[in-house]
């Protein structure tokens, strides 16, 4: 019983990262109608950025966010300008198809580049407090992962506030609902696209830092994280960042439960089953409109 409870706790901890990974994908898809399948590779790059910031600059792993988040926002601006800015000029159906091609291409390039630059080895950040564990009611909670969950929640909450209170946040939501009406309202929709894409990349970078701190990073983690994010987006639906975060935690718990019930190798299967079931039963997702 306590072994199961322990698995659930670990599931919640990683679920927060699923939620954070999904938030960026959801924002970009909801606003630009572009599915960025290279989202996981952006998470991977964020992870490496944190790894090198710690290894070369001697930064604190969580402190590296101060460096990695601005860098990933910048990377978002560059990627939008170089690749995705062209796609959004097409109609929505063409957008989705072309964005898939561009995303896959980008994912392959980034993956190959990471192998070339940093080898295919798995790396994780070693910190003095990395092994610290809090014990609550017989359950051990790794401090680093708990901190990651708290940061993920804070970032999602901050994002939600931005989207509801900031002038451009409202503009981004309006663009997601009806871009033509947003244009008529006087919103520079291209700029809203750019901002949403950069924010999506920033979220991926943040997730990457937390992944490499609490878990590990290698060039091949991209696809895995894109898949997790996609499952959470389908599960939670578009339109609510908090909903996405909750969806991530649900996936983390579901994985933990299935690993406990059917054994470790089946951990991944449950996510895909959820994916199919939600698409059949409630295509808008649990919290979607």
């Amino acid at each position: 019983m306590s072994a199961l409870a322990q698995q659930i706790v670990l599931g919640i901890l990683i679920g927060g990262l699923y939620g954070l990974a999904a938030a960026g994908l959801s924002l970009v898809f909801g606003v630009l109608k572009v599915l960025n399948v290279a989202h996981g590779e952006l998470i991977m790059l964020g992870g490496y950025a944190a790894f090198w910031a710690v290894a070369l600059l001697g930064m604190d792993p969580f402190g590296s966010l101060v460096l990695v988040v601005p860098l990933s926002l910048l990377a978002g601006v560059v990627l939008y300008g170089a690749l995705f800015g062209f796609v959004v000029r097409a109609n929505e159906e063409t957008r989705e198809k072309n964005s898939l091609l561009i995303g896959f291409g980008l994912a392959l390039v980034l993956h190959a580049l990471a192998v070339r630059l940093w080898t295919a080895d798995e790396r994780s950040i070693v910190t003095p407090y990395g092994g610290a564990v809090i014990t609550v009611a017989g359950l051990s909670i790794p401090v680093v992962r708990l901190l990651s969950l708290v940061i993920a929640f804070a970032v999602i909450g901050g994002l939600q506030l931005l989207l509801t209170h900031w002038r451009w946040g409202k503009a981004i939501r309006a663009t997601a609902e009806d871009w033509q009406a947003a244009l008529l309202t006087g919103i520079d929709v291209r700029r809203a696209y750019l901002l949403a894409f950069a924010m999506g990349t920033g979220l991926a970078g943040t997730a990457g830092v937390l992944v490499s701190v609490g878990y590990s990073v290698s060039p091949s983690i991209g696809l895995e994280w894109t898949l997790k994010a996609l499952i959470v987006v389908v599960l939670a639906g578009l339109g609510s960042m908090i909903g996405t975060f909750v969806g991530g935690i649900l996936l983390g718990v579901a994985e933990a439960l299935s690993a406990a019930a059917f054994g470790g190798p089946y951990r991944e299967v449950v996510g895909l089953v959820i994916f199919v079931v939600v698409l059949c039963a409630r295509p808008r997702g649990l919290f979607g409109r």
């Binding site: 002038r167 409202k170 009806d178 009406a181 008529l184 309202t185 006087g186 919103i187 409109r289």
Partner: peptide, 19 residues
């Protein structure tokens, strides 16, 4: 009308004064 279905009346008016 083309309103933003999930947004409030006030948010529409705020967005109206965007320029």
């Amino acid at each position: 009308r083309r309103l933003f279905a999930g947004m409030t009346v006030q948010e529409h008016l705020d967005l109206g004064a965007f320029t």
